[in-house]
């Protein structure tokens, strides 16, 4: 009757060990692939002009031989042209702008999404499901479509004045359209929904108002999710590129991503100073990595959950 058994000829242990080694090798290869661009960024930033143009490229430089000129020269003042008198790469200005924008949008986004998620999760009202459905559907629309009109709206609101745009105007223009997020509303609603109904009814019986319930029960219970949203949203400002470039009239109003591209190409010769470019890229990447390693758990948990639930 039996036909499926296999004689114990091979050593299954060795087979298992070999397959384990192969899996680790595969993962290590991927890990190296992921890390190499960061390494190359740092490596190039500490090379001097001669090292950079060396072929084959240097793969390693002892820390004692690192050249920091690329970093120091980022702060040299530009001698001529429209950006005369400013640092070559005004990192601290960009950082300041980015942080300001990130704080404002995060506060705004938190407030609007918490309120909306609460309404969707807990309150019964006519048309709730329809409104929710419509809002969710907008996630499928490429945001680039909105930009065309939003630019005109910002202009009409007087925040985009080519001659006299103030810092305040620029900040309003950069933040207001991003004061809410459908995605985070959806994510937060899921968390709110997991809070048992009984808590709500108990609070109602005790005469608690909806708003007080939201403040005293929902928000504290959902705090891990809210923290994740705050972290993820704050990091968004770092990669914002097109919109800040579009609605600001002065370099000094822009964000880190805008400063990165184009600043290090000599317009007359078309040559790019890769050392300076990589130094600035490293400066921009570093704060993000610090934030990431500080809040690693919250960030990864938040992203994985949002992916699953979505």
């Amino acid at each position: 009757m039996s036909e499926v058994f296999v004689k114990n000829e091979k050593s299954y242990k060795t087979k298992k060990i070999i397959s384990n080694v192969l899996v680790y090798l595969f993962l290590a290869a991927i890990a190296i692939t992921i890390l190499v661009p960061f390494y190359w960024m740092l490596l190039t930033s500490v090379k001097d002009a001669i090292m950079i143009e060396q072929t084959p490229p240097l793969l390693f430089i002892k820390p004692s031989e690192w050249k920091l000129l690329n970093y120091t020269s980022l702060f040299d003042l530009v001698q001529s042209g429209p950006r005369r008198g400013q640092p070559l790469f005004p990192f601290f200005t960009y950082m300041k702008n980015t942080i300001v924008i990130s704080i404002i949008t995060t506060i705004g986004t938190s407030i609007t999404t918490i309120l909306a998620a609460y309404a969707f999760a807990r309150l019964n009202f006519k048309g709730r499901d329809v409104v929710f459905g419509i809002i969710i559907a907008t996630m499928m629309i490429p945001g680039e479509i909105f930009i065309l009109t939003n630019f005109l709206t910002v202009n009409r609101l007087g925040w985009y004045d080519i001659m006299n745009q103030t810092y305040m105007d620029a900040i309003l223009a950069m933040t207001l359209p991003f004061m809410t997020s459908v995605f985070y509303t959806f994510y937060l609603r899921q968390t709110f929904k997991q809070i048992p109904n009984e808590l709500y009814y108990a609070a109602k019986v005790d005469g608690t108002t909806d708003f007080k319930y939201l403040l005293k029960v929902m928000i504290p219970v959902a705090m891990p999710t809210i923290v994740t949203i705050i972290i993820l949203n704050s990091m968004g400002a770092w990669s914002a590129y097109i919109w800040p470039a579009m609605v600001t009239t002065k370099d000094s109003y822009r964000l880190v991503s805008n400063g990165l591209r184009g600043a290090f190409t000599d317009t007359s010769t078309g040559r790019t100073d890769y050392g300076q470019q990589m130094a600035s890229a490293t400066l921009v990447t570093l704060p993000l990595l610090i934030v990431f390693f500080t809040f690693r758990k919250q960030i990864m948990r938040g992203v994985s959950r949002s992916g699953i639930k979505g």
Binding site: L35, T55, Y274, Q277, M278, T285, M300
Partner: peptide, 28 residues
């Protein structure tokens, strides 16, 4: 953690690093 790093970095900064790596003469 290593695999997640690209998610939290600035796409333009890393893009520039890739550009250097793709350089014909002194790229990786």
């Amino acid at each position: 953690t290593v695999f997640f790093l690209p998610y939290v970095t600035n796409g333009i900064a890393v893009g520039m690093a890739f550009a250097v790596m793709f350089h014909r003469d002194y790229g990786l």
